Computed example of a mutant assay.
Amino acid sequence: MSADDPKTLVSTEWLAAHLKDPDLRILDGSWYLPTVQRDPKAEYDAAHIPGARFFDIDDVSDNRSELPHMAPPPEKFMSRMRAMGIGDGHQVVVYDGAGLNSAARVWWLFRLMGQHNVAVLDGGFPKWQAEGRPIEDLPPIVRDRHMTVRVQNQLVRDVTQVSSASKLGDHEIIDARSAGRFAGTDPEPRAGLRSGHIPGSRNLPFQTLLTEKGTMKDVPELRAAFEAAGIDLAKPAITTCGSGVTAAILALAMERLGKTDWSVYDGSWSEWGAFPTLPVATGEN
């Protein structure tokens, strides 16, 4: 697989070369935990890649759920994307203000909705800015385009399916949270959640898959990181994290490896950690 793949990950050089393509659509998918105290929409309004639209992960979600930013119904996704001028035939590139973080969640949402021409910008806005590439503070010109959605149910798992996988051991459940949160020694950033992890899961903190510059490691290094965490890549995988955001980074990495039998536990620890009847394990892998 080449370094630039419009279905998974593209470089800032690739995006700069395609910036004026008529069917390119760029999304700022920045999202942060409240503890970070960053306002992604305000940052977007102040400066973004030319032509970029702001993708609000909390808005493009299922507001019927009490869990944070769960995947939206397909009709809502279609409606929001049409309002943003994104539809069939577009090549979508998603970035975020952290480098490579929440953009992967947006990539996963598009894949869940059956859209394949979507990639994450490697290194995100920090790398783009550091290279002195163009930015603007203007709102984009939006023209409606229809989007055909075909939900790919195999890319998402609910609590019942994850509970079954945990008991049967027929999937690798991979947790993207920090080692301390996984082990149960560090508190959860969301109030009311127990500490620990899903029994039988493996810990692969998402930062392990990134370079010091915030870009994704190359394929051999990614494979080595999964193997070092004791993960059997021959088994189907379910990724999880705090609320289904950084779990998508693990999914993106596996897609880069050519592994396609993965899914994201959308509720993640925000759901599992809140239910006293679900078992919790502590300690390391």
Score class of each variant (00 low, 15 high):
G244Y: 01
P50S: 14
L33V: 02
L193C: 13
L250K: 03
T211S: 15
G192R: 05
T240V: 06
T215N: 14
K76H: 09
M113L: 12
A191K: 08
E212S: 12
G273I: 05
D266V: 00
F182E: 15
L233Y: 08
R190H: 15
T240L: 11
S270E: 03
D144T: 15
W269L: 01
A274Q: 04
I173P: 02
T239L: 08
G214V: 13
S270L: 13
R177C: 02
G192C: 08
A71G: 07
K235R: 09
P276E: 15
G87A: 04
L155N: 05
S195W: 15
G196V: 06
T148V: 15
E188H: 07
G51T: 09
L112F: 13
N285T: 00
E136L: 09
M78N: 02
L278S: 10
D186Q: 07
P126R: 13
L233Q: 10
Q91C: 01
P139Q: 14
T260Y: 14
N101G: 14
L233C: 11
K259H: 15
D175P: 01
Q115V: 06
G132V: 00
S79F: 01
A46P: 14
E255N: 05
V159N: 05
G89Y: 04
A248G: 02
A3P: 13
L222P: 05
G114N: 15
T148Q: 15
P73Q: 07
F275V: 05
I249T: 11
W108Q: 10
A119T: 09
L222Q: 05
D59V: 04
A224D: 02
V94H: 05
V280Q: 09
D96E: 13
I135F: 10
I26R: 12
A47Y: 04
Y95H: 07
W107F: 12
E212K: 06
S178Q: 13
W107N: 04
M113P: 04
L278P: 10
Q161C: 03
S61Q: 08
P74S: 11
W14K: 05
I86E: 00
W272K: 00
P199R: 10
D21S: 07
D59G: 01
L33Q: 08
R177Y: 11
G169Q: 01
Q161E: 06
G192Q: 06
L257Y: 09
T215D: 11
M78F: 00
A71V: 00
M147A: 08
P220G: 13
S178H: 02
L138G: 11
A3C: 11
D28H: 09
Y265Q: 07
V264M: 03
V120I: 08
H116N: 07
P205S: 06
R25L: 02
V94Q: 05
P34Q: 09
G87K: 02
A83W: 02
D266N: 11
Y32V: 07
S164P: 00
A191S: 15
F77N: 10
P40R: 04
G196R: 03
Y44L: 03
A237I: 04
W14S: 08
T35H: 01
M84P: 02
Q37D: 03
G29N: 11
L257D: 03
M78G: 07
